[in-house]
Simulated assay, not measured.
Amino acid sequence: MADLETLDDAVAAAAFRRLVRHLRHRQDAQNIDLMGLAGFCRNCLSDWVEEADGTITKDAAREIIYGMPYAQWKAAHHSEATPEQLERMRQSVAKNA
């Protein structure tokens, strides 16, 4: 079985960048739906970038992930969550603990 910790950093970085490019392309995939299915979203990725770097700001990390300032992305692509989406997210995030 392959070990995640031995994965070459360049390979991991390439895969991460491909994931970010995919999420930038699929702007129709709402964060609330990603949270409901997988327990993470673009904001989580940006938080992880911020934590991993230690010097980058939250706004800068979000701009890396979204490809634009978060407020701009939110204004253009965000829709209000339904009660059903919020409940799916709550259940999904509970599995992260």
Rank of each mutant, 00 (worst) to 15 (best):
A76G: 04
A75F: 05
H25G: 10
A61K: 00
N43M: 09
L86I: 06
G36P: 00
A29G: 05
S46C: 02
Y70D: 06
R24T: 00
F16K: 09
M1E: 12
Y70Q: 13
I56Q: 12
C41Y: 00
D8A: 06
R42K: 15
I32M: 09
E87Q: 13
G39Q: 07
H77D: 08
K58Y: 11
M68T: 15
K74Q: 11
L37N: 11
A15E: 14
R26G: 05
R62I: 03
N31K: 01
Y66R: 07
E87I: 03
A15Y: 02
T6F: 05
A71F: 11
T6I: 08
R24I: 04
R88D: 06
A97F: 06
A71N: 14
D53E: 04
D28V: 07
K74I: 00
A12E: 09
T57F: 00
Q72G: 02
I32A: 00
P69G: 01
E63D: 13
N96G: 05
D9L: 10
E84Q: 13
M35F: 05
A14T: 11
N31M: 00
H22Q: 11
A61G: 10
R24L: 08
H77Q: 05
L23N: 08
G36W: 00
Q30G: 06
A76P: 07
T82P: 04
L45G: 06
A14N: 12
A97K: 10
S92N: 07
A14R: 15
D53H: 13
